[in-house]
Amino acid sequence: MKLQGEVAFEANRETVWDALNNPEVIAKCLPGCESMEPAGEDVFEAVLKFGVGPITGQYRVTLKITDKNPPQTYVLQVDGSGKPGFVKGQGSIKLQAQDGGGAVLRYDGDLQIGGLAARIGQRMIGTISKQLTKQFFSRLVEAAESTTEDSQDSPQIPHPSSNFP
């Protein structure tokens, strides 16, 4: 399925770019992220937990950042599987500085979900994927802005792993 959208940040482009490249921030923003460990340059192994309809479970996912062009674009590749099935996808992220400060992020991705979750949760997959994507970016907005306000503290984001349909 296609995942596309636009997110506005009050934080400037460089701050957002840093957040997008900070594994700790990403781990906290990723819905259902139970752990995330580096596994090479710009490669991370994460354990995500989420549910599609009645099918809930853990996925071991590899996140890989490629085609980096700081502080404007990168491509994120996602590949993983778990008992409920598999996820596979890739998406581009484009950051644009706004005239009055702040930045706009455009994402454009294609996600495949297979296995039990796809077969049983078919009606919900689209909605849930979009919802999870929105959650990720709204948390990223918070994270980037809290970094701007107080660059000493790590972002104050509630751990999200139980927060799912």
Binding site: Q112, L116, A118, R119, I120, Q122, R123
Partner: peptide, 12 residues
């Protein structure tokens, strides 16, 4: 289009 079956239960 990837061959994932969309009708795996009587819901669909």
């Amino acid at each position: 289009e990837n061959g994932q079956i969309l009708t795996g239960s009587f819901m669909d």
